[in-house]
């Protein structure tokens, strides 16, 4: 299978198969209820897998590395901090009187504003010093997480419980009211990013080369960062933080695609995201009879994959 397009078709078929299995295996009880529940779960997984896969590859292209992911750079921790601050300063009762779509919109825009400020400040013009950037990102992530933790410590216990429930919404408990708007957002962002796929091929060569080749670098990078942030916020709002999913999908996508072209990398990464989530849940649920631990397993496998790759190659 020398042609990567054949591999892509195969991967797409695998994704469809996994999703179908997820829907169809072990159907017992009230059929319509179970099917609609599972359809919601699988829709969530498709959205999260796509959003994570696409945003990670593009983030790595823009930052010119294959280690950093938005999650590692503190994106999800920021989301947790925003959620916590809202509950802390506004209070859950008052916040709940806002309709769910409005809450989602406010949270997502706050996230976009803060993340964009942070990434622009960190990334623009400082790309030559990768490790400082990486560490700063990591530390910002830890800062956000600790600040959120601190606020949580100072909260009234019942508020804390409400917040916990929101932050760690699990894959298997989809927020059905958000599916429509989240789906629309993900589709829109991916479509907009897809238009730039050839520009990203050039941007991957580095800022100076890209500018030299006439790519409107600042404009495209800024837009891409906005869209990436929206994708991450959407995914985090749906299922909570998943740090290593993006790393896994992007790393495997580079290997499987065997090409640097984003027209291939992006679908590879997105499909892998869906397969990991749906396939992982399928295996856990039916082989090990464990629900609700997929995120932990993904964290473990993603981290272990990273270390194994490092050990085998001795470098990145």
């Amino acid at each position: 299978m020398a042609d990567p397009r054949h591999r892509l078709i195969l991967l797409a078929a695998l994704a469809v198969l996994v999703c179908a299995l997820f829907l169809g295996v072990n159907l017992t009880g009230k059929l319509s209820y179970i099917l609609s529940y599972r359809a919601q779960v699988i829709a969530t997984m498709i959205l999260v897998g796509t959003a994570t896969g696409v945003s990670t590859v593009l983030f790595q292209t823009i930052t010119g590395n294959r280690i950093l992911t938005p999650s590692v750079m503190g994106a999800e921790a920021l989301f947790v901090l925003i959620q916590t601050s809202i509950i802390f300063f506004i209070g859950s009762a008052r916040w709940d009187s806002v309709p769910v779509v409005g809450r989602f919109a406010i949270e997502t825009s706050a996230m976009v504003v803060f993340a964009l400020t942070l990434y622009r400040w960190l990334l623009v013009g400082k790309s030559e010093d990768l490790y400082r950037l990486l560490l700063a990102g990591l530390v910002f992530g830890i800062l956000f997480r600790s600040a959120a933790e601190l606020l949580q410590r100072m909260m009234a216990p019942n508020e804390f419980n409400i917040l916990q429930g929101r932050l760690f919404a699990q894959l298997t408990l989809p927020e059905s009211r958000l599916l429509g708007i989240a789906g629309g957002l993900v589709a829109l962002c991916v479509a907009l990013l897809w238009r730039y796929r050839r520009d990203f091929d050039v941007i991957a060569l580095g800022r100076d080369v890209a500018i030299g080749l006439g790519v409107d670098y600042p404009r495209i990078v800024t837009r891409a960062l906005v869209l990436i942030t929206v994708l991450i916020s959407t995914s985090t709002a749906l299922i909570g933080p998943l740090t290593f999913l993006g790393f896994m999908t992007a790393t495997l996508a580079y290997q499987l695609a065997g090409s640097q072209r984003h027209a291939l990398l992006l679908p590879f990464s997105a499909l892998l995201g869906v397969i990991f989530l749906a396939g992982g849940q399928l295996v856990l649920e039916h082989l090990f009879a464990m629900t609700g631990t997929l995120s932990v397993v993904i964290e473990f496998t993603g981290g272990a994959l990273f270390l194994l790759m490092l050990l085998r190659k001795g470098r990145l």
């Binding site: 932990v296 964290e299 473990f300 981290g303 990273f306 270390l307």
Partner: peptide
């Protein structure tokens, strides 16, 4: 950090 994350996940 990755090692810490893997151990933490376990």
């Amino acid at each position: 950090i990755m090692l810490g994350a893997v151990l933490g996940a376990i």
